[in-house]
């Protein structure tokens, strides 16, 4: 029974000691300790959050880079394509021009030839005319050298006229 009979002295001292211990610990130990722990947790949380943020930023940065790279690549492709197009166009143009030129030259040559031909023909015609006149003159001279011949000619001509 003695074991379960609380002694007043011990109750008194326990109360006093516990109260003092509580006050001292609360003020000088728990407050700074819990404060520091909370502060540390807060700083860890902040650090984690900022790391997360940095990661996020890094990700956007990376994706930006990726985007820029893709754009650059696309631009390069476009430039190359343009260059190719221009080259082809230039070649085509050059080809066209050359063809036209050659055609023109050919045409000119052809015209020239034609002209030359015409000139030659005209020349020839003139020559032929001159020659014909000369021949005719000579023939006429010989035909008309005697009266007989003149008469037969007239007869011949008259015969022709009758036939007509």
């Amino acid at each position: 029974m003695e074991l379960v009979t609380p002694g007043i002295g011990l109750v008194f001292w326990t109360s006093i000691v516990f109260a003092i211990l509580f006050v001292l610990l609360a003020k000088f130990a728990w407050k700074p300790i819990l404060g520091a722990i909370k502060e540390r947790e807060q700083s860890i949380e902040d650090a984690l959050a900022s790391a997360e943020k940095a990661k996020e930023e890094m990700k956007t940065l990376l994706s930006n880079n990726e985007r820029i790279l893709t754009e650059a690549r696309a631009e390069r492709d476009e430039l190359l394509k343009d260059a190719r197009d221009i080259r082809e166009k230039m070649i085509a143009e050059a080809k066209g021009l050359a063809t036209k030129e050659s055609e023109r030259l050919l045409q000119a040559a052809r015209e020239n030839i034609q002209n030359e031909k015409m000139a030659a023909i005209t020349e020839l015609k003139n020559q032929v005319a001159v020659l014909s006149i000369e021949i005719a003159e000579k023939i006429l001279k010989s035909e008309l050298s005697s009266d007989e011949k003149q008469k037969s000619l007239v007869n011949n001509l008259l015969q022709d006229v009758n036939l007509n």
């Binding site: 003092i20 211990l21 001292l24 610990l25 130990a29 728990w30 700074p32 300790i33």
Partner: peptide, 15 residues
């Protein structure tokens, strides 16, 4: 109490 106080006051000091 002396042990508890010395433990935790020095711990608080460390913080």
């Amino acid at each position: 109490v002396a042990i508890i106080l010395s433990l935790f006051l020095s711990m608080a000091g460390a913080y």
